[in-house]
């Protein structure tokens, strides 16, 4: 009877120690998740752990982050191996090129815009509006927004501001 109790106690202690040496999957998962949370480069990754095998998935920023995720986790306690199923977020598409108005339409629109600004001469070539002459500051602040909304390539302002 006494021996049985001793044996049982030994068994319980051994089990506890064994578990202590090799963390449960849930604990490993929690530790990895904590690591992901505190490591900006690992943002986007999720993890599942089965029998010490960590499977990471989700979308991370770039290839470097993907490699880094694996390296970080491989060295963690209780992790036997890592299956890296992370995908890399594709880079955003380049912005659409700026559309420049054709000279004919632009010339007409510029003529309309400067009509009420005596003393201002405007010339349009290859999308560039060149302004010469003179203008008052108040008038310049009215004219410029109009000209820059006509989709010119640029406005070359050579006006003398009075």
């Amino acid at each position: 009877m006494k021996l049985t109790k001793v044996l049982m106690a030994v068994a319980i202690i051994a089990t506890t120690l064994f578990v202590g040496c090799s963390p449960k999957d849930a604990d490993i998962k929690a530790a990895i998740e904590e690591k992901i949370k505190t490591t900006p480069a690992m943002t986007g990754a999720t993890v599942e752990v089965t029998d010490g095998i960590a499977t990471i998935s989700g979308e991370v920023k770039d290839g470097e982050c993907k490699t880094m995720c694996e390296k970080e986790i491989v060295g963690m306690k209780g992790v036997k191996s890592v299956v890296n199923n992370c995908t890399v977020t594709p880079p955003p598409p380049p912005p659409a090129p700026v559309v420049i108005a054709a000279d004919d339409a632009l010339t007409k629109a510029v003529t309309d815009a400067v009509k009420d600004f005596p003393g201002v001469m405007a010339d349009v070539k290859d999308g560039v509006i060149t302004l010469t002459g003179e203008i008052k500051k108040d008038a310049l602040k009215k004219l410029m927004p109009v000209l820059q909304s006509l989709k010119p390539k640029k406005v070359d302002n050579k006006l003398t501001v009075k």
Binding site: K137, Q148, K153, V155
Partner: peptide, 10 residues
């Protein structure tokens, strides 16, 4: 006076 010609604000 918007003289640089390096910005088009629409």
């Amino acid at each position: 006076n918007f003289t640089s010609g390096d910005l088009v604000m629409n």
